[in-house]
Design a protein around this nucleic acid. Structure first.
Lengths: 103, 103
DNA sequence: TTTGGTAGTCATAATTTTCTGACTTATTGC
DNA sequence: GCAATAAGTCAGAAAATTATGACTACCAAA
């Protein structure tokens, strides 16, 4: 059974881990857009107002490192790269949706 | 029925709101400790290694502002102030616990 | 009305994050 | 090989966040 103990155990606390994974100015927004559709670097740059290449590159890399996004290289006319939610990323969606019901 | 649409709607996105409410160096840890027991300023200062008055004061005020903590003034021998989770704060616990099951 | 304890505030300094703009790599088609 | 396009990297500058240490507010008991 799951108890309050777990949320209180510093080393394992999953909430702290999640907050860390999604910390930073752009990661939440990138994750949110990834729920909608696969991401492309250049369109992300156009879509996310006020962002810049460096910011997005770092955020995408970090989201990849924590296994929320996966990078897919598509060898085509001009090089294409797509970022998709991983299984772990998808698993967050129903949890986040529950936040709807908070006052 | 709850759909992906909601997590994708920028203005209302509850996940973004939550991440914002708990952003910053100390807020996650303060929230975590508040799950265990009511908080007192001075003991928090002793407990959270590396923190300082300013940091904690700001974090506590912000957690209060978003209605995750409530402040209770206890008029006693020396002034006492307690911070407790609000109903909204309590409501987050079961949601956070589900994060246990993520890879 | 002074003392002692808790709970802070405030201005400034240090640190961390983020931004800007120039430069690099990779691939395809000519 | 050379140009064009996508996807970046990098160093230095700017901005935002966090830390430090001195100071203040409040209350109760003596």
């Amino acid at each position: 059974m799951t108890t309050k103990k777990e949320i209180v155990d510093k080393e394992t606390c999953p909430a702290q881990a999640l907050l860390k994974m999604l910390s930073g100015k752009w990661k939440p927004e990138i994750f949110r857009l990834a729920v909608k559709a696969p991401l492309r670097f250049s369109s992300l740059l156009r879509t996310i107002e006020g962002s810049n290449k460096q910011a997005l590159a770092v955020a995408l890399r970090e989201l990849e490192e924590v296994n929320l996004l996966k990078k897919i290289v598509i060898r085509q006319k001009p090089l294409h790269i797509e970022y998709n939610l991983t299984t772990k990323g998808e698993a967050l969606i129903p949890i986040f949706l529950q936040l709807e019901n908070l006052a």
